[in-house]
Amino acid sequence: MSVGFYLDQDRCTGCRACQVACKDKNRLEVGTIYREAHTYTVGDFPNVKAYSYSAGCNHCENAVCLNNCPVGAIYRASDGTVIQDPERCIGCRMCVMSCPYGQPKYDEAKGVSGKCDGCYGLRQDGNEPACVAGCPNRALKFGDIDELRKEYGPDLDNGSITILPSPDETHPNLLIKAKAAAFEKDPHRINW
């Protein structure tokens, strides 16, 4: 079994409610971000198209963070969630450096890394991850990746949109209902 996120780009407005919901649930100080949303454009004025993307841990099939952790602080739960155990982390940052999605984050104040655990604890009590439950536009879902594919259709992208690294690297558990513009070359991120 594998778990991961589904993102509907026809619903993601780039509002970043997910980003702050994540910070709230994970009690993250300024400087540490497990999930972030950004808006990208392709083309030049006035022929411009845009899309937004909410990025977080993809709980990859080939979880290089897990593979590269020298002390076994990152592990996979039976449902497929890739989880980091801060009690074991020695702060070597191998996970941070190896993840092509830039996901595990090193917290200098604490001297350890941390990452999204898909709100594992919340899910055990029947709740959705904070970012999913907090999305005002219902753009994010989390769950069994096969179930998500069944629910949202077979034509979903598995992480090959232009702004992401090739999914061949780590086989992310990621399903995107992508806007066509997300496959175009030379996107610009709007830093508003």
């Binding site: 454009t41 030049d44 006035p46 411009v48 610009h188 709007i190 830093n191 508003w192």
Partner: peptide, 8 residues
Amino acid sequence: ALMDVLMP
């Protein structure tokens, strides 16, 4: 913030 979505 430079953007293509704003009129010149």
